[in-house]
Structures are given as C-alpha cells and as structure tokens.
Design a protein around this nucleic acid. Sequence first.
DNA 1: TCAGAAAGTAAACACTGTTCACTAATTTTT
DNA 2: AAAAATTAGTGAACAGTGTTTACTTTCTGA
Lengths: 215, 215
Amino acid sequence: MPTEILHTPAERRRLKVREMILSAAERVFAREGAEGLSIRRLAQAIDYSPAAIYKYFGSKDELVDELKESFFELLLIDVHEIFDSAKPFAQRARACVGTYVEIAADKPHHYSAAFTGQAVQNGIDVDDPEFENSMKGKAFMVLKSMIEEGVENGTFRKEIDPTLSAKSVWASMHGLAMMMAHMPTFPAFKPNTNTLSRAEFIEFHADQIVRGMEA
Amino acid sequence: MPTEILHTPAERRRLKVREMILSAAERVFAREGAEGLSIRRLAQAIDYSPAAIYKYFGSKDELVDELKESFFELLLIDVHEIFDSAKPFAQRARACVGTYVEIAADKPHHYSAAFTGQAVQNGIDVDDPEFENSMKGKAFMVLKSMIEEGVENGTFRKEIDPTLSAKSVWASMHGLAMMMAHMPTFPAFKPNTNTLSRAEFIEFHADQIVRGMEA
DNA sequence: TCAGAAAGTAAACACTGTTCACTAATTTTT
DNA sequence: AAAAATTAGTGAACAGTGTTTACTTTCTGA
C-alpha cells in the first residue's frame, strides 16, 4: 500500500504541519503519556496557537488515537516478522510472545493507552467494516495462525480451539505487558532486589504460556 | 485487628463525615472511574464545599487510593477464602484464579486504577516497612503458597520456583482481568458474537494457566 | 467563661480541552 | 489581473478541573 500521491502544494503543506504536530505530540506522549500532553504545551512546542491544532484534529482523543494506532502498527510488524521467520516452531512461538511484551514495555504509555482509552471502553463499532482489518484484529489473527500451526504439527494438544486459545494467550501476554508498563521494578516488587532481569522473566513467562498448550 | 475505639464525640463525627465522603466517592467511582469523580461534584453530592474535602483528604489521589485499597482488600478476602477451603487442590487453584478475575471484571474502574495509578508508576517506597503487608504483597503470598503446595503434592513440576511462577501466573490473571475491565465485549471482539460467556472463558483461561505448571 | 483548636467556606489561582468570531493568507473562478 | 471563495491561523472566551489561602463559624477542653 503506497503512500497516496498529493498533487497540490497546499495538500503537501497541510500534511507537513499535521506530521509536525504528530511528531511533537509523540515526543511528549512517550515520556509523560496522555495526561502530560496538553494542547497548549503542544501548540507552544510547534509555535502555533492552541486553536490551530483543532484544524488538523477533531479532538485531543483523536490525536492520541493516531499515536496509539501507529505504535500498534509497528508492534505488529515486528511480531509478524518473527512469525514469518524460518526458525523452528517452538522457538518462534516463544519469540513472538517475547517481542510483543518487550515492545510494550519499551513504550509503556503507548501500550497502556491502546488498551485503556475511550474507544476501547465504548466497545467496537459493529458497523465499522474496518474492524476485521484493525491492528488488534490483525494481531489476533497472527496469534491464531500460530496456534493453528502448532496444533497441526502436533506441538500443541489436538483438542485445542485456536480462536479460544489465541484469546487466552493474548490475555496472558497482555498481563505481563501491562505489569511492566506500570511497575518500573517488575518482576521485582521492591527496587534493588535480586531477581530475574526483565528479558529473562519475559522468556520464562512465554515458556509458561506455551507449555499450557503443549501436548 | 478490631476497629479502633473512638472516645470523643468529635472524633466519631469526623469519622462519620469521612465515611460519607468515601461512600459518595465510591458510588461515582464505580460508575465513572477517577475521571468522572470530581471534587466539586462530590462536594455537591454530600452538601459540603469543595474545600471541605481537603480537611479530610490531602488530595484527590489520596482519596482514590483509599477506594482502591479497600477494593483490593475485599478481593483478597474472597480469594483467600477459596484458598483455605477444603476442596481438592486442582479445583481450588482454578477457583482462585477465576474469583480474582471475576471480581476485577465486576469493578473494572477499581481494578484498573489499582494497577494504573500514580503510586504504582512511581515504584514502591523501599523504606515503607508496610510494603510486605500491603494488599498486593499479601495477594502475592497467597499465590505463592498455593504454588508451593502444588509443587509439594506433586501436582506441579518439581523444578518450579514458586516465587517466579507466582509472578507469571499473576501476570496472566492480570491480563484477563484488564481485558475484561476495558473491553465490554471480551472475550468476543464484536458485540452479538457467539462465543463463550465471560464465566466460561475465565474457567478456560484458569485451566490454561494451571496446565502451564502441571507435571 | 473564654482561649484555642477544629470545621467549614468563598474566592481565587493555575491549569485543562474546546469553541467562536475574526483576520490574514492562499487558491479558484471570472 | 481582479474578485470571490476557501482555507490557515489566532485571541479571547467558556466551562470545567484540582488545589490553596484567608476568613468565619462552631465546637471543646481547661
């Protein structure tokens, strides 16, 4: 899907300003999350008036939604890459889970917002034909395909329902991702406690999840 | 630990007002979460001025923290009850996980806030001697004890480290709890889709988690 | 009774997202 | 090229937020 061609200079300029807003917002959001990102601060950073931003985005929520979506898109690309790699299945499955959690832990505000925001709470619009192709829809399909493969090649128990298991596995991944996003010391509870590193713990967790499906 | 006796009428009155504030806050918070709970609205509901609330709570965050703590306390009591019941181990383990998630799904705002709030993000105060006795500390100990029991009675693999596994299991429970808290249709993605009920899915998820540790 | 403490408040401060009337710049049409 | 129409951008305001300060009223212990 190539970027659409913009004929007129006006359209190009408009998009440039839009991108400027988004990238300034991205910087603040990554550090301080949605609460820290204020329209006035953002406007000041890009040397525009606060009202100007509303010519490009309907609301702050809409702006933030776009940040979340592009984050999730990148996350999905990385996971998909591992999924499509030539490594042995058991390794690939664990790596997918690990990568998902690592990316989430790396941008805690993005990840957390993607699952906590207004749009999520209000449920998904049934009439939106884009749903099946949404980022989360796609992420889910990757997971499901992986489990199907595991069931077919006999790694996973044959009675497993891939759709059902995919949701359960996702929930488990999501849990660790959220814990790491919100607790800077996890998997330790207090700072300066000798425990596994984050990477080691993610590996352990991934292993635990995959074991739950193995024959 | 019995409720402390309050000798003077002044102290009793003060506590009464405090409780009034808390219970009014609880009602709003349960429905609309921390965002929906405003000091002015709260003050109006209990027929006091906004400033009055600051004679009882240092800040809105402190007030909300108290709501979260008492919620988590109740959650812990329920889980502990099942843990101490006389049912067979395999059943008990699954029921603990199930109860945890169900209570979380029942009060989504409480649960979510308990793991998303400011206090969590800033890490836990190492110098706070209460940490080990905090609600989360206790919840963790219950989980750990259960896994220890499972390892000892041979239900779980003998090489399992209870401390480590408890964290992993907690993450998995947490993930489902968060998904249900934030997505009204989960485990379905769209409304009106034929899938397992919430209760059925929780059971399935719990089973998946426990399987990951079984011998 | 009366001093001191505690309870309660009105008004302000410094923020927030958002809208509206308005000007200035830039296309589009004649 | 000039006029009309559209778009970009803005200052000021609105309605809301958490919180503080100075002040008054009420209560209470000596």
